[in-house]
Design a binder for these strands. Structure first.
Lengths: 133, 133
DNA sequence: CTAAATGGATTACGACGGTAATCCTTATCT
DNA sequence: AGATAAGGATTACCGTCGTAATCCATTTAG
C-alpha cells in the first residue's frame, strides 16, 4: 500500500468501527453507527462506504445481496498519515506545542504522564540493547 | 472569542505568518509567503485573507490604499481547537492512545517528555496554592 | 503624460465532503 | 399475492476550499 488515502472526519468514524470489527456487512455497520449516534442516516453511510472504497481505504465482496467490507489500510497507517499532516499543518512538524496545550488545559493527567514515562522507558531499553544508534 | 473558527491547511500558513508578525499589510504578507514558497499566487492569498476575515480569525483596518491585518484569535487558541478536533477524529477523543502512538513512533523525544514534566510540575503548584478543589 | 503596476472587491471554476433522495431489484412480511 | 422493506447504484444539492481571473480605481514608473 503505497499511498494512504485521506480520510475525512466523518469517514474516520466509519473506519474506526470497521477496524474494530471486520469483515462487516453494510447493514451491520449502519446498525452500529446508529447505535453510537442516532443522527446517522443509512444513505449517508452507504455513500461514504462507496467513497472509501473508491479512495482505496476499503474493499468489499458481495455476500448474497449485500456487501462485506474490509479495510485495505491499517489503523496505524492512517493514524501515522493523519498525524504527520496534522503536525505539519499546525505545528510545522513539532509535537511539543500540542502536548503543552493538553497539559495546560488539564487533558493530560499525572497518571497519563506516568504511563507515558513507562512507555518511553520501555522503548529506550530495546534500543540500547541493539547498540547501533 | 467564543468560537474558534476552523482554519484550513492553507490558511494555517497565512495565520502562522501573521501570528509571528502583526500588524502586517497584505503586500508584506504576500511577499513573505512568496519568499517561503514560490507557488503562492497573490490573488490566492488575498482571497484567503478575505475568508479568514469573514470567519472571524482576522481583522483589518485600511491604511492608505492597503489593509493592515491582525489576528482575532491567538495561536494557542487555534492550536487547542485543532488539537482537540484531531484527537476526536483520529483517536475518538482519547488521549492515551495518541500518546502511546507518538512514543512508539518516536515522535515524542525524551526532551519533549522532560519539558512536559516541567510544565506539569509548574501547573500543579498554583493549584495547591489556591487550596479549594 | 501615458503605460504599467498595484490593491481590493467581486466573481468563478472544479473538486471535495456531508447529506440524502431516487430508482431498481430482491427479499420479507402480512 | 400484494405491500413493504432492504440493499445497492446513481444522482443531486449545497457549502467549503484552493486556485485564480476580471474589473475598477489608484499609484507608480518611465
Amino acid at each position: 500500500m503505497l499511498k494512504i488515502p485521506k480520510i475525512t472526519e466523518t469517514e474516520w468514524e466509519i473506519m474506526r468501527l470497521i477496524w474494530t470489527k471486520h469483515p462487516i456487512t453494510s447493514g451491520e455497520l449502519i446498525d452500529q453507527l446508529s447505535a453510537q449516534d442516532r443522527s446517522w442516516h443509512p444513505k449517508t453511510a452507504r455513500t461514504l462506504l462507496g467513497r472509501l472504497v473508491k479512495k482505496g481505504a476499503l474493499k468489499y465482496e458481495p455476500l448474497g445481496r449485500s456487501y462485506v467490507y474490509e479495510p485495505l489500510v491499517t489503523e496505524e497507517e492512517c493514524i501515522g498519515s493523519a498525524s504527520e499532516s496534522f503536525l505539519d499543518r499546525v505545528f510545522g512538524g513539532s509535537l511539543q506545542p500540542m502536548l503543552a496545550y493538553f497539559v495546560k488545559n488539564q487533558k493530560l493527567t499525572k497518571q497519563d504522564f506516568k504511563e507515558l514515562g513507562e512507555i518511553l522507558e520501555g522503548r529506550e531499553k530495546p534500543q540500547n540493547k541493539r547498540g547501533k544508534k
